[in-house]
Each structure stands twice: as C-alpha cells, then as structure tokens.
Design a binder for these strands. Sequence first.
DNA 1: CGCTAATCTAGAACAAGTTTCAGACCCGTT
DNA 2: AACGGGTCTGAAACTTGTTCTAGATTAGCG
Lengths: 209, 209
Amino acid sequence: MGEMAADPGPPAPVLTQRQEARRRRILHAGAQLAGRGGFEAVQMREVADAAGVALGTLYRYFPSKVHLLVALMEDQLQRLHAALRRRPPSAGCADRRVAETLMRAFRALQREPHLADAMVRALTFADRGVSPEVDAVSRLTTAIILDAMRLEEPTRDQLAVVRVIEHTWLSALITWLSGRESIAQVRRDIETVCRLIDLPEADRDGPGP
Amino acid sequence: MGEMAADPGPPAPVLTQRQEARRRRILHAGAQLAGRGGFEAVQMREVADAAGVALGTLYRYFPSKVHLLVALMEDQLQRLHAALRRRPPSAGCADRRVAETLMRAFRALQREPHLADAMVRALTFADRGVSPEVDAVSRLTTAIILDAMRLEEPTRDQLAVVRVIEHTWLSALITWLSGRESIAQVRRDIETVCRLIDLPEADRDGPGP
DNA sequence: CGCTAATCTAGAACAAGTTTCAGACCCGTT
DNA sequence: AACGGGTCTGAAACTTGTTCTAGATTAGCG
C-alpha cells in the first residue's frame, strides 16, 4: 500500500524553440483571461485567439481547459518556490515558518483573486484524467511546505501532517474564493492546522490495517 | 468581521404535494445517474427524462446541475446525521469519536464512489451563485462534527479546529476520488487532523486583526 | 362552475468545451 | 533540392449545460 507516485510518463517530448514559445504564449493568454473573469472567462476559443494559435493546436498542447489551468498553477507555484528559496521564512519554529509561507502564498493569490479562482477551481474539479498534472502541483506544494519546515527526510508521520496542511490550505482557499470564509478565517485555519507540526507523537491503539 | 452566515432567503416557498413528489423524483433520478458514471453521467436531459419532468421544470427546481448535486449531498448528509443520532460514536475521547464518525461517513461514500464523485466535485466546483446551498452543507457537516465532540457551546478556537477538520475531510475526499490518495491515507489524514482536538491552547503572539 | 395566475410541457435555440478533417506548413533526411 | 512524417491552421460539427417560447395544465378563488 505505497505512495502511488504518478508515473512521470513520456518525459516531456522535447519541444522546439517555436513550440516552447507557443506553449508560453498559451499559458500567458490563459493567465490574462483568468486574471479577469476567473474560471468561466477562460474560454478556449479566446485563449487560442489571444495566443495566436489554432484551436486544435491549443488542444494538442493542453488536452482540456482544466489541464491548461492546472499547468498555470504549476507555473505559478514554481515561481513561488523560487521566490521562497531566495527569501525563506525567518521565524524560529517550524510551525510559524510554515504559516508564514502559506500566508505569503495567500497574499499573492489575493492580488489576483480571479486568477486564483480559475486555478483552484480547475485543480479541485480535475478528474482522474488530469491526475498526473494535479499530482505535480501537489508535489510542488509538499516541497514548499517541507522546505519551510526545513526537513530533508520526513517521517511517515510528518508526511501525514504535511498532507493535512495541504488539505486545509486548498480547502480554505476554496471556501475563501466562494465567499464563505473571510481572509481572517483563512489565516486562522492555517495557523490552527500548523499547530500539528512538532506535536508529540500521539499514541494510537488501533490495530494495523 | 463576523461569521458571514448566509441569509436563509425566502424560507422555502411551500410546495404542494405533487411538487414535493417531483422534487424527490428529480433528486432520485440524479442519485441514480450519479451512482453510475459520477459527475459527467448526470446529464440534465437524462435527469429530466428519468424524473418524468420537462427540462424547463428541472431548471425551475434546481437552477443548475451543481445546485442539483449539492442538494443531493445535503440530502445524504441529513440521512447520515439522523443515523448518527440513532447510533452515536462510542469512543471515550472526543478525537476518536470524530475520527470514527468521519470514517463511518467515508465508508458510506465508498459504497457508491461514483455518487460521491458527483457530489464532492459539485461541492468544490460551486461558484458564488451556489453559496447558500453549499453553506447549508457546510453547516450540516459542522453540526455532525460538533455532535461527535459533544460540544454545545464551542469556543472560537474549537470552531477553528472544526473548520480545519472539515477542510481536511473534504480535500482528502477529493484526493481519494481522483485516485491520488489511498483509503488508508485518507484514514490517516483524518486521524492526524483529529489530534488537534483537545490540544492545549497554543499561545500565539500575533496582534489582533 | 368559471376565471386567472402560476406552473408545466415540448421543443427549439444558444453557448462553450471538445472533436474532426482537409489542406498548408515545417523539419530532418536523403 | 525533393521527400515524408509529423505539426499547424481554419472551419465545421458534435455534445451537453442553459435559456427561451408558445401553448397546455393546474391550483386557488370568487
């Protein structure tokens, strides 16, 4: 019963210059449109138009709207990850550093709430066909959190905590985006879940699986 | 910066017998279809057909597919809530009771994974237009968890913990449904987040809002 | 019973994601 | 430079959620 790591599959089929440029143009157009109206404003015909590419080509690069938006999220997360390496969180204990990191990410999303809407909705709406891509995003998020905790070799238990933090992070975002939770509450949720970090190992008596 | 409780709005405009029956037929048809193919298999024309109702009527009762599926989830949760009142979780400490409760709900969902898929995807995909309905589901979930904790008058802090548990619950479901997390991992996540219950109040030094 | 407003039905129409196809284009090979 | 396979384009077609319309039914009321 292992980790179900996603098979990386065909290892990125090597794009020519022009193809790489096309891919970037598409992502850029997607971000542009998402930046206004959010998920619904990203219309495939308009993306293709704005990117100067035929509809069929768009679908060759991103097999669905959700794929496109998830790729966009991956892009943003990579940027964030890089920024965090440059200026890592400074707090003294791990839980504060993680909370600080997530709040930094949250503030970044607040700057473009529509874009956040598009990316997060795509991420949670994705079905099994997008699993590899969603998994890449998840691994990136995990990496960011583990960085903040300054952990190289997490234990099983620490990984479970990280997963729970990730769950909270994502779901709190959804709740915020749909207007059912305030910014302050999101902050509170993040701080609350971060209490799980460096908590004494709870002994459990349940029998193994 | 309060709770943002959703205005209940027009308090359920009183349906005639036949209308109530229609509503149930629609929900039943929706559940039926969702039970096979999940979210995508719930096609509005087919729902209308199976419920013996015109498409326009379906849309009068449920203004969108997401509304319909969220209503379904509310329905199921009410059933679960009732069942839990009949046979409440028995464990000695609050965190075990909550974990037991959520695992019970999880097992119920496992029995009809496609239905679960449809309901959960709808719930997280819902936009602001569905907020009141999603909020009803959220309140129900909160009530179920508070029941398991046997709390009548939760403190602010306890409410934050409950929110985090809810976040974890929902997001773990998503991850399971998309095949990226195993049943065992979901169980582990639930047990992990439940450790937050009856944790000594962490002192925090951040200034108020 | 007969009236009136609201509701329901059947079906067309519209919108946006996705698929398909014929032909033009680009790239590495000979 | 000509060739051949994969890639791109433009446009139409298809699918499914959603909206609209005209006429039939129903519910409540005098």
